[in-house]
Design a protein around this nucleic acid. Sequence first.
RNA 1: GCCCGAGUGGUGGAAUGGCAGACACGGCGGACUCAAAAUCCGCUGCUCGAAAGGGCGUGUGGGUUCGACUCCCACCUCGGGCACCA
Length: 845
Amino acid sequence: MTESAPEPNPDTNAEIPVHRYNAALAGAIEAKWQDRWDAERTFYAPNPVGLLTGVNAERATLPKRYVLDMFPYPSGSGLHVGHPLGFIGTDVYARFSRMSGFNVLHTMGFDAFGLPAEQYAVQTGQHPRVTTEANIATYRRQLRTLGLGHDPRRGVATTDVAYYRWTQWIFLQIFNSWYDAEADKARPIADLEAELDSGARTPDDGSTWAELTEGERRDYLDTHRLAYIADAPVNWCPALGTVLANEEVTADGRSERGNHPVYKRPLKQWMLRITAYAERLIADLDLVDWTDSIKLMQRNWIGRSVGAEVRFPVVKHDGLDIVVFTTRPDTLFGATYMVLAPEHPLVDTIVANSWAGSPAAWRGVFGADVSPPEAVARYREYAAKKSELERQSEGREKTGVFIGAYALNPTTDERIPIFIADYVLMGYGTGAIMAVPGQDERDWEFAEVFGLPIIRTVQPPDGFDGKAYVGDGPAINSGPLDGLNIVDAKRKMIEGLERGGWGRGTVNYKLRDWLFSRQRYWGEPFPIVYDADDRPRAVPDSLLPVELPEIVDFAPHITDDPDALPEPPLSRAEDWVFVELDLGDGPRTYRRETNTMPQWAGSCWYYLRYLDPTNEDAMIDPRVEQYWATGVRDGAPAAGVVDLYVGGVEHAVLHLLYARFWHKVLYDLGHVSTVEPFQRLYNQGYVLAAAYVDERGVYVEASEVEERDGAFTYRGEPVTRENGKMGKSLKNSVTPDDICSEYGADTLRLYEMFMGPLDASRSWNTSDIIGVHRYLQRLWRNVVDEETGAVHVSDAPADDDTRRLLHRTIAAVRTDMTALRFNTAIARLTELNNGLTTVVARDGN
RNA sequence: GCCCGAGUGGUGGAAUGGCAGACACGGCGGACUCAAAAUCCGCUGCUCGAAAGGGCGUGUGGGUUCGACUCCCACCUCGGGCACCA
């Protein structure tokens, strides 16, 4: 056995043995190996073709394994020990995979567009790119110290022009596509145009293609694209100066970032047609290995409900119907009134001019002394002004107003009154409901307030003393449905509705299309220009990238005025906004789109660019994509290209839903060969740490708090201890740099993996680190003489007990590693080392 | 309100139907040291007992089982998600 001399300990403290494993020696060992990995390009993962082929080429014939972290936003404060928890976990798994004979792709990029760099730029005038690049350099240095085995060639940042060029290209793929419902996939918009031109397809709005003007045809195509401009109610946040996606607004109507008030108002914005994929986004969850809780969160967010659409004819308006969506068509006989959302477009058409003897109670507080149209106007004003927060604080007290109009219940031919009320939302279903107070708690409450009739259509069980009964039971008061349970009654009702032309079975989703434009500087510009008719035109691929223009004032137009219009910073770059281009019909002047893409855009596909980061001719070379897409699951081809994806649970809906959507579009268009991006998803827990509050309730710097006899003080003042997520806001961050210099990176890595299962949140406790440090020290001492540096390794066969222990450890560690149970793997290794320590103490080596 | 998940020593945690508390921190005792730190060795769930030994013990109450931290039912507490979604 050849043995090289161990590193001498650079620590000059004469008190300790020269070859003791401590922070100084660990640092020397780690630096030596990190340099060697760089020099030998150890972690370069070879591609089958292209620029990333030469180094380690022999590994390209091995089966592949793709181990991915959710890439970080490079913030100005650098890493704390909570950030690398997942990075270390994937690194351990990647190294284990590499040693198990896989060609492992493992790297780290940066999600570098976003608000903090822009806000810092607004404050200091420094360009966000400068800040961003400095922060990335800090992150790279910190990550290198941790000894992570990344392929450095693949770690792209979303702000790289060479990267966002392809983000823009993907946007154009989406823009240039439509969703073919029959084929159930996205197809090029050119196909739609060709089919309309040839007559193979007719417009779905009832128009005749041949009779449309050129402009009307453009409009038709534009409204069918997967990326389209809509003048729809959006979430407008004046304090941030931008609009936000539904997913970025909290339940109480505030911005997730900054907690500012958000207002619903109609604005022209870019939308992505994610709703076309709702069914596939639910169905394909069966193909991936994610935790049930994450799958459930996505299913709930998409919110599929099965029911029926039913037409209610409006009295005195021949041929005019109100269409409602209901999940309970079986209760139709009990529909005693209807409710429209206040902003429902039919309201203005059907509102009556007089109350015509209807009960005064129906007028609520808004129509007490005025005409129905005036009552509608007043109620609308009341509902629009009420913020989401106020709706919350007022509880669920039902308000609304009768609009003087009636509809006919198609099953009973009864005349039923039509109300508007804000408990019906325009954004869900058809914005109109049939109200069945007997079987719906909200409808019951409303009926009580307005004195409306209640008819039970399901027999409640004996002893039921509640109001609305939502459970199962035999149908009553429902003519031919009587006696049937809910499931059978629904089926029979839908059959009847479809036969009579009164409705049909349908499926509805909570998911809305994705609001995709932001009024910000530090984001990807859209590769879109507007022509003289104000219609959007794609910038051709040959003119990509559309680079961010240099401007001086990065600030969004921030205001307290909810009526102010958003004003993108890019609109100030007038030289850039107006551009002369030849889009095939001669040179003309166009106006550029001045919105930018949301931060989610770059994170929707970075895992794909990692595959072929230097390719200038394509997003990915298809042969490279094919190689990395060859995963296996239960013996069959895996659905996802990434074998293991580790990150925080906070991305359960936003990022993971958006990325799946983009991936499916790219799949439909033939650019990727898997239907899903991420085969196995694992959510690492948070690192928690003690945080301290003073008597004013303000957090104080945790590292300066002193403990005496169980009481805590900060600069002499008493403080109380809490436990919370490590971070800047709780002032309880611990940096990896400090831990590395005190114990070494291997001790830090070992501690973070030993604290508990990877998916559980764990409390950081600096005093516990010594345990794993001692383990490394004992391990070292079993191999290296602390005094002389002599390596005592023996070729002599171990005794039976030792061999048994060794092989038991190997088996257990292998199982634990595969299941990402690193804490127990380390415990097994500690037991092995404790066993060896006994042998060494007995036999001398 | 609805839907998930979790409750085990002083602490982090282990055990997924078969010896509860692996591994580690902390604590106690010892070795080394003038002394302390570091390092090493031993003990350490609670409780009765001088000891041998006994009793109790995985949030609470019930159940299934030869056997339950583990499976089932109800409840309590904590954490997360959704929230007038028809």
